[in-house]
Amino acid sequence: MRISSILYSIRQGVKNIKRNLLFSLASVGTIISCLFLFGVFYCVVMNFKSSMDELENSVVISVFFDEGITDENRSLIGEQIRLREEVNTMYYISPEEAWENYAKETYKDNYELAMESFAGDNPLQNSDSYEITLKNLENHAEFVQYLRELHGVRKVVSSEQTADGVSALSSIVTYASIAIIAILLMVSVFLISNTITIGITVRKEEIQIMKLIGATNFFVRAPFIVEGIVIGLVGSMVPVGLVYLMYDKVVDYLVSKQSIVQNLFAFVPAGEIFSVLIPVSIIIGIGLGLIGSLVTTRKHLKV
């Protein structure tokens, strides 16, 4: 296609929007509301996910060893575990650390006294362990089973109920968000398609003349595709801007007014969220416009 033809198609596309201003605005409005909700959902899901990650990291699996295990065998077990893909972090807790942690937790203010009275005689001599966190809690049960079957492992302690709960909640939130966003996007495509159909109906005579004169299919369709893309682009930029302006304010408000929220949630910084949300929204907006116009012109403009 020539540059002059591309410019002509762009001009015609913009003219179409002006001619069907009311319907174009309705389409833009729908995309704005869909992508605004998409943006809000995305922010909520990302923050929820980040909190889930924190929670997942707090689910620790402790691996204790057979009594009298050699340092070498213990290291070997460590190497084996570390090679597993599921492992996120793994620390070795020596008997001394284990006793100190226990004393701190149990005796609190009197813990130094307890340490002194047991000096040189560690009650948790055989309680050194590996503390492991997983990348994903879905495989938690299988992984614990694997650890239990390792030679030289005496006991594996883990909070299975928490792990299962977090994992299930995380899945529900993810699937529900995907479903809602998918429905919103389908509604947008339908509305863009409707706007383009009206544009085609209004310009029926012009399209017929174009076809009889010898315009290619692409040339006939190009202005409508431009129309769809412009509607999608405008419809995507407005809500992203709105969500961007609101995000920090809402987070600040929640943190300052609702301290319980601060404890529950690990808020993701705006930069991190919008470095993904801005391009994704624009791509979705343009994509919606493109799909809506392509589907409609294919249906109505059989030459």
Binding site: M1, R2, S4, S5, Y8, I209, M210, I213, G214, A215, F219
Partner: peptide, 11 residues
Amino acid sequence: AFAQRVIETPT
């Protein structure tokens, strides 16, 4: 001019 534009004649 429209007839020429649709067959992509240079301006």
